[in-house]
Design a protein around this nucleic acid. Structure first.
Lengths: 230, 230
DNA sequence: TGACCAACATACCAACTGGTTGGTATTTAT
DNA sequence: ATAAATACCAACCAGTTGGTATGTTGGTCA
């Protein structure tokens, strides 16, 4: 294939292919276990190309986190739950969407930046920062709906919209770890079910109601996890 | 110091020192980024000693997970909440205890097996299995109290004691990731607060009550996380 | 047309990787 | 006392690591 060099900076073919490779391999093996050679092999480029686009392996990690933010933002922006009129319904729609995309093997549905954070938080500050921006930036997109749902339903607990938004991400990240440990995506979906049940309880008003029953039915039945202590 | 070799198999000095070193270094850097040389340096032994006690680096990982299970089991077994008479109070006491020990830097309070699972689930099946045994084995210790609390309070939701026990571990693991990302232990404590609030809501009976008010006061106020999207 | 530059490729390097070898000191069983 | 086993050490090894030095190619623009 010919080079698509349109002289747009930052849009070389090799760069995107390396970022895609980074997403796939790092999710499966982790950052430290992913060698530059393996990245180049998967992307079909040479090491010269790698270090042309990225100053170091750490810089690749930072770029991969940013790339992850971009692509996942687009995924969520296009999801149908945004069309719902009620902010509470949109919040629950978001979680139902998150639940729905937990399928297949862990390497396919788990979070790149969550994985990288675990390894790099102490040794690679730049990566830690990029991952934090991705996680908390995503959480921040939930805050307006949470705040609106609190306002319309007159909820005023000893918690903030920001802390609940962060908590949703904590549950998701933890669900991914349990899924990796058990080898079963259902384990992760179970935790999302608990999270949805929690939020339903939080927003359950005894008297007034919104456009939908807040304390209403759960979308899924919680199953039992398989693995236990030996 | 002289060798304390009491000819008890599995109790050489070097072995324990290597396991302690593994706990500390892997929690800070991750498994893949932790070299055998670094382990030996920290433990003050040579590589010959390492491979005398462990067949491979992977075997060290498995042993470290088992060692983690042992030491943490002892920690929780000695915790005071076990003395509480009501199973619901014991469950909440456990979570309050977990919350309390989240202090200092992430490398000090985060979970070794959660970290290792992230990296090793695909490439090191033996480590994944050992980590799963540790996580779900620990979760299983919570099941009796959850089941008893459900029975005494007449709770029968569409969830099981096992799934709630697993969920508590998911929240904790996710809380650790967010703490690593934000660099702030308070972020993790916030999620534990949400978890405790959830369980309080789950066990809140409108009529009958246990020995303590299930829907009662929260032990801590949720604070706001600091880092946000750039 | 030709200078320039981004976008790659090839070949190479010192440092480090997990793992092995052959050995010695200490302990335990007989 | 002695044989066998355990616990440990120093030196070494082949392969891999992240990173670099030195190209070549083809599009852009004065």
């Amino acid at each position: 294939m010919p080079r698509p060099t349109r002289h747009q900076p930052e849009r070389g073919d090799a760069r995107t292919r390396l970022l895609d490779a980074a997403r796939d391999i790092i999710r499966a093996q982790g950052f430290a276990a992913t060698s530059v050679d393996a990245l180049c092999r998967e992307a079909g480029v040479t090491k010269g190309a790698f270090f042309h686009h990225f100053e170091s392996k750490e810089a690749l990690g930072v770029a991969a986190a940013a790339y992850w933010s971009e692509t996942t933002s687009a995924l969520f922006a296009a999801a149908p739950y945004h069309a719902l009129p009620d902010p509470y319904d949109r919040l629950m729609g978001y979680l139902a969407f998150r639940r729905q995309i937990i399928a297949g093997g862990p390497a396919e549905f788990t979070c790149l930046v969550g994985t990288m954070t675990q390894e790099a938080f102490a040794s690679h500050p730049a990566i830690r920062q990029a991952c934090a921006a991705s996680i908390f930036g995503h959480a921040a997109t939930l805050e307006p709906d949470i705040a609106a749902a609190m306002a319309t339903r007159g909820i005023a607990g000893d918690w903030t919209a920001a802390s609940l938004a962060a908590h949703t991400q904590a549950v998701l990240q933890g669900a991914f770890i349990l899924a990796k440990a058990s080898g079963d995506a259902a384990t992760a979906r179970d935790s999302v079910d608990h999270l949805m049940r929690y939020i339903a309880l939080l927003f359950a008003t005894s008297g007034a109601g919104g456009t939908s029953g807040a304390g209403g039915r759960q979308p899924h039945k919680t199953t039992r996890t398989k693995e236990s202590t030996p």
